[in-house]
Nucleic acid binder design. Structure first.
Lengths: 193, 193
DNA sequence: CATTGCACATAACAGTGTTATAGTTAATCA
DNA sequence: TGATTAACTATAACACTGTTATGTGCAATG
């Protein structure tokens, strides 16, 4: 990546972490990066291009959180560790997470390249969650189980972000999510044994 | 509600259903409603006020979907019926659902009144999900179980909306969600019997 | 009749993403 | 070396956004 390109991306990432999408105007990025506004369009495909990079950046963080396939503690604990990592990434990079799930910019929709990265992440999730299934399980079934786990974890993260109800303390959320997932994974194991 | 007020709200609701938040500009609403742009500010508190009304409108639809407490089929089937209603509302009023969960307008955050309506909906959810729990269960525990169910269902809806992966057909989603919820509710019942 | 208040249209302000125009600087090539 | 080309820059404009100030007319009230 060229110098100017990485400088722009760094500035955008900083602004993004500081104030989310609302702080991410083309003029603000170019000002902080020390380039002209037109630079955003020559080095990236406008704001869409910037958001794509941040989208991919976000998924790569999720990637690394789930990259714990080779655990000695057995499939159940490996998955729960992956869930824990996911929850932590979602907390630490909340802005990225919101962008990925469309919670921050109505106009944005990921490019083909960005979509490809997200599918790669889903495939990794399938690998991890397949650990609790018999080896001869069909791919469709594996996808369904992976989706099941993902939906559950993401549901907790999403509800937490939007804080519809303030009845539950922020610290408790991740514990509740882990307990619920633990119960559900046991149910899946029992069902498909 | 005055004539002009309901006319404006009707226009806003129509535009919203047609094209989501991006179609909801103050000028577009006033044009369709046949009033001046300033009318949005005299009858409502600007765009925020309009979005608040739609937010509440959305929650009332969720309300009515879950308002099936008195079912003769027993607690398990009653809950699953509530989940089914929830999924259907989420499909039918996708724009409202996205607004409620912040997936459509970054700048918007619900007013106190709107928040109150959402808490009322959560309390109803607690009532429904408490059906599978012993009567002497603590309120905190009831909340946790309600959150568990909500997170799971919402996770499916949210992932479906954003279609990270196109590997699963749209028609299949709700069936998968219902099956997963069915499994999990059994697990909850077994755990807290 | 005069005054008050309400709804109106028009226009403006500050911001957004994007693009056209024009000027400057650096590197490449004959 | 001198000329051309490419890449950068700044400035300004366009069409849009939410919001507000200004002025206009009309209706009801004192």
């Amino acid at each position: 990546m060229s110098d100017a390109k990485s400088t722009i991306l760094k500035a955008a990432s900083e602004l993004f972490l500081e104030g989310g999408t609302s702080a991410l105007s083309v003029r603000a990025i170019s000002k902080r990066a020390g380039v002209s506004t037109i630079g955003i369009y020559s080095h990236f495909k406008g704001k869409q291009g910037i958001l794509d990079e941040l989208y991919i950046e976000g998924f790569e963080k999720v990637f690394s959180a789930m990259d714990i396939l080779k655990s000695a503690k057995g499939p159940r604990e490996t998955i729960l560790q992956g869930v824990k990592g996911y929850l932590e990434v979602a907390d630490k990079y909340e802005a990225h997470y919101r962008l990925i799930f469309g919670e921050s910019d109505a106009g944005y929709s990921p490019s083909e390249e960005a979509r490809a990265v997200s599918e790669k992440a889903f495939k990794m999730l399938i690998d991890v969650s397949s650990l609790i299934l018999p080896e001869d399980t069909s791919l469709a079934k594996k996808q369904h189980i992976a989706l099941e786990i993902w939906a559950f974890v993401h549901g907790y993260v999403s509800l937490k972000h939007h804080a519809i109800s303030t009845l539950i303390s922020p610290e408790e959320w991740n514990t509740l999510a882990l307990n619920a997932l633990s119960t559900h994974i046991d149910a899946i194991i029992a069902k498909h044994a």
